[in-house]
Simulated assay, not measured.
Amino acid sequence: MAEHDTKPEVVTTEAPELKTRRYTVGYIRDWKTHNRATSITLKGAWLDDAGFETGTPLRVRVMPGCLILTAQELPPAPPPEPEIMQTLKKVCKLSARKQRQVTDLIEVISKPQR
Results as ranks from 00 to 15, higher is better:
residue 69 L to W: 07
residue 83 E to M: 09
residue 71 A to N: 07
residue 10 V to I: 14
residue 84 I to K: 01
residue 61 R to T: 15
residue 53 E to Y: 02
residue 19 K to F: 02
residue 67 L to I: 03
residue 48 D to G: 02
residue 110 S to N: 15
residue 58 L to V: 15
residue 8 P to D: 11
residue 57 P to V: 06
residue 24 T to A: 07
residue 23 Y to V: 04
residue 17 E to K: 02
residue 80 P to A: 13
residue 101 Q to E: 13
residue 57 P to Q: 06
residue 15 A to N: 07
residue 73 E to V: 07
residue 107 E to Y: 10
residue 47 L to E: 09
residue 94 L to S: 01
residue 29 R to F: 00
residue 106 I to L: 14
residue 57 P to Y: 04
residue 10 V to E: 15
residue 86 Q to A: 08
residue 3 E to Y: 02
residue 1 M to L: 13
residue 85 M to F: 01
residue 23 Y to P: 01
residue 15 A to P: 00
residue 70 T to K: 10
residue 102 V to S: 03
residue 23 Y to S: 06
residue 28 I to V: 14
residue 85 M to D: 02
residue 76 P to N: 04
residue 56 T to I: 13
residue 35 N to W: 07
residue 65 G to R: 12
residue 22 R to W: 05
residue 12 T to K: 08
residue 105 L to S: 02
residue 34 H to F: 09
residue 92 C to K: 14
residue 57 P to D: 04
residue 36 R to N: 05
residue 10 V to F: 15
residue 39 S to T: 05
residue 35 N to E: 15
residue 22 R to L: 15
residue 9 E to T: 11
residue 61 R to W: 00
residue 19 K to Y: 00
residue 65 G to F: 12
residue 41 T to E: 06
residue 93 K to D: 10
residue 19 K to Q: 09
residue 82 P to H: 03
residue 57 P to T: 02
residue 87 T to R: 12
residue 40 I to K: 03
residue 77 A to K: 12
residue 53 E to R: 15
residue 18 L to E: 08
residue 44 G to T: 11
residue 97 R to P: 00
residue 39 S to A: 14
residue 98 K to I: 02
residue 54 T to M: 08
residue 78 P to W: 00
residue 78 P to C: 01
residue 3 E to C: 01
residue 48 D to V: 08
residue 76 P to V: 07
residue 36 R to V: 03
residue 52 F to S: 07
residue 111 K to Q: 14
residue 18 L to N: 10
residue 32 K to F: 09
residue 39 S to F: 14
residue 89 K to F: 00
residue 6 T to A: 13
residue 23 Y to N: 04
residue 87 T to N: 04
residue 27 Y to L: 04
residue 68 I to S: 09
residue 20 T to L: 08
residue 77 A to Y: 03
residue 28 I to Y: 13
residue 82 P to V: 03
residue 43 K to E: 10
residue 38 T to P: 12
residue 55 G to Y: 08
residue 66 C to P: 00
residue 100 R to V: 14
residue 24 T to G: 10
residue 25 V to F: 08
residue 100 R to C: 06
residue 46 W to D: 03
residue 34 H to W: 11
residue 92 C to L: 14
residue 9 E to N: 05
residue 84 I to F: 07
residue 96 A to Q: 07
residue 52 F to A: 05
residue 28 I to S: 15
residue 82 P to S: 03
residue 4 H to K: 15
residue 51 G to N: 04
residue 113 Q to N: 12
residue 69 L to D: 05
residue 96 A to M: 09
residue 59 R to D: 05
residue 59 R to I: 01
residue 15 A to H: 10
residue 66 C to R: 13
residue 27 Y to T: 14
residue 16 P to M: 00
residue 64 P to C: 00
residue 95 S to F: 06
residue 23 Y to I: 09
residue 28 I to A: 13
residue 46 W to L: 01
